[in-house]
């Protein structure tokens, strides 16, 4: 979600990519020598840039996988276009710090006034509300053509070998951990979206959101979200995708050839699974 620094007259957050770019330009501040002292925006990319990037792809009306884990579409025009737009922020537009940007240092950069807006995980919401020394706000991710967002989170796996008491105990545990009581505490402590919709109907959650409404924005954004990149041999395929995005962000490769190469390499792996 983009958060914004307040020292600017436009109080309304950007809704589209173009608005975001326009505001980011206004918020990019340079000193007398031309060195940037405050960037307009920061989208972290270290380690797994494909995650936030998939949100930009969904906002561009694109898809990254076929949902079955047997095919990817990362050489599609929507993906390539999204990547060009992302890279442009730190190259042609100059509103984002060039190079790969750390996740951990991103909220810090926001607090220190090194960036005016940031994209980051919902899990940072509580951190920002506790530590930002200024007034700030939360908005949905601005899309290139429409709203779009990535999804994340973790999974509980039930082994097929489980049975009887073990199986029922496991199911009990999963039910318990995702139950509203636990979810509310989790959401309060971090900002993460609660996994079950019913949690948002409870009085406790309503009371919390009445006081601090920002977590609801992430929940509402879920309707525009697409699935996380997931295929057979996922570590390898997503690694190829991530390294390709990095290569482009580092200026080592151009978006189109990088994505075509990565798609071909992933094809080579996935063709065995069709």
């Amino acid at each position: 979600m983009p958060s914004e620094r307040p020292d600017w007259t436009l109080r309304a957050p950007p809704k589209t990519w173009d608005e975001q770019l326009e505001i980011a330009k206004k918020l990019t501040v340079k000193d007398a020598s031309g060195t940037v002292t405050q960037y307009g925006i920061r989208i972290p990319s270290a380690g797994f840039p494909s995650w936030l990037f998939s949100g930009i792809v969904y906002g561009n009306g694109g898809k990254i996988t076929n949902g079955l884990g047997t095919a990817t579409f990362i050489d599609s025009p929507e993906v390539i276009d999204a990547l060009e737009k992302l890279v442009a922020l730190s190259t042609t537009e100059g509103v984002m710090r060039p190079g790969i940007l750390e996740w951990g240092a991103t909220p810090q950069a926001f607090f220190e006034g090194q960036t005016a807006m940031m994209w980051t995980t919902t899990g940072n919401l509580t951190n920002v509300s506790k530590n930002a020394p200024f007034d700030w706000g939360v908005a949905m991710l601005p899309g290139l053509k429409q709203n779009g967002a990535p999804t994340g989170g973790g999974n509980f796996f039930l082994s097929k070998d489980l049975s009887g008491d073990e199986l029922s105990a496991t199911i009990d545990f999963v039910k318990w951990i995702s139950a509203p009581a636990q979810s509310i505490a989790w959401t309060k402590a971090t900002g993460y979206v609660s996994p079950r919709a019913e949690t948002y109907e409870t009085a406790a959650m309503k009371a919390f959101l009445a006081e601090f409404p920002y977590p609801i924005i992430a929940k509402n954004q879920l309707q525009y979200a697409g699935p996380e990149f997931s295929t057979y041999e996922n570590p390898k395929t997503v690694g190829i995708f991530n390294r390709a995005i990095e290569a482009v962000m580092l200026g080592e490769k151009q978006p189109a050839p990088a994505m075509k190469e990565a798609q071909a390499a992933i094809e080579e792996i996935l063709k065995d699974y069709r």
């Binding site: 020598s33 060195t35 940037v36 270290a46 710090r97 060039p98 190079g99 790969i100 940007l101 750390e102 240092a105 810090q108 950069a109 220190e112 090194q114 580092l250």
Partner: peptide, 23 residues
């Protein structure tokens, strides 16, 4: 970048910010 020790020292001498691990 920006607020790490190296950039803070660098900025004392008017050096531009670095992104050592990000380039």
């Amino acid at each position: 970048p920006g607020f790490g020790l190296i950039d803070q020292i660098g900025s004392l001498f008017g050096l531009p910010n670095t992104n050592i691990l990000g380039s």
